[in-house]
C-alpha cells in the first residue's frame, strides 16, 4: 500500500514522465465464449485503451484450453482479472461492467476525459 501511495504522489507531480515507467501486467482468465467472458474481454480492452495506452500487457487465458493454469493464480471465479504487476496481486472477478470499480481495483488513475 505504501508503494501505491508513493506512486500516486509521484504521478501527481510529474504526470507524463512517471506514467511511462508504470506498467500493468494483466491476465484475464475466461472459459470459452460465454457472454460473461466476452463482456469481460471487451470491457477490459476498452478500459485499457482508454487509460493505459501502451502501458499494459494483457494476456487472455482460456481455461477450457489450458485448465492447468487455473491453480497457479488461484482462479475460482470466471471471469477473473489478475493484476500481476504492479504488486501486490489483485483480482477482480466478474464481467468488469463497473468501470470505476475496475480502475480502483487495478489502481489505475483514470485519464480525465
Amino acid at each position: 500500500m505504501v508503494k501505491e501511495s508513493k506512486v500516486k504522489k509521484v504521478t501527481k507531480g510529474k504526470k507524463t514522465a512517471k506514467m511511462e515507467e508504470d506498467f500493468w501486467e494483466l491476465r484475464l482468465y475466461v472459459a470459452g465464449n460465454t457472454p460473461k467472458s466476452v463482456a469481460a474481454i471487451n470491457n477490459l480492452k476498452k478500459y485499457c485503451a482508454e487509460h493505459l495506452v501502451d502501458k499494459y500487457k494483457l494476456e487472455v487465458i482460456d481455461l477450457l484450453v489450458k485448465p492447468q493454469l487455473a491453480a497457479g493464480d488461484q482462479i475460482l471465479a470466471i471471469p477473473t482479472l489478475v493484476r500481476k504487476v504492479p504488486v501486490p496481486i489483485r483480482k477482480i472477478i466478474g464481467d468488469l461492467s463497473n468501470e470505476e470499480k475496475v480502475l480502483v481495483g487495478l489502481n489505475i488513475r483514470p485519464v480525465k476525459k
Binding site: 460465454t34 463482456a39 485448465p67 491453480a71 470466471i78 471471469p79 466478474g94 470499480k101 475496475v102 481495483g105
Partner: peptide, 28 residues
C-alpha cells in the same frame, strides 16, 4: 491435492461471474 486460496482483501467483485474456474480446476 489442490489448495484453493481465497483472500477477500485481494478480490474485488464487479458484475456477473460464475465459479467455472473452480469447476475447471476440479475437473482438471
Amino acid at each position: 491435492i489442490d489448495h484453493v486460496h481465497i483472500d477477500r482483501t485481494e478480490i474485488e467483485e464487479t458484475g456477473e461471474y460464475d465459479l467455472d474456474g473452480l469447476f475447471i480446476r476440479l475437473g482438471y
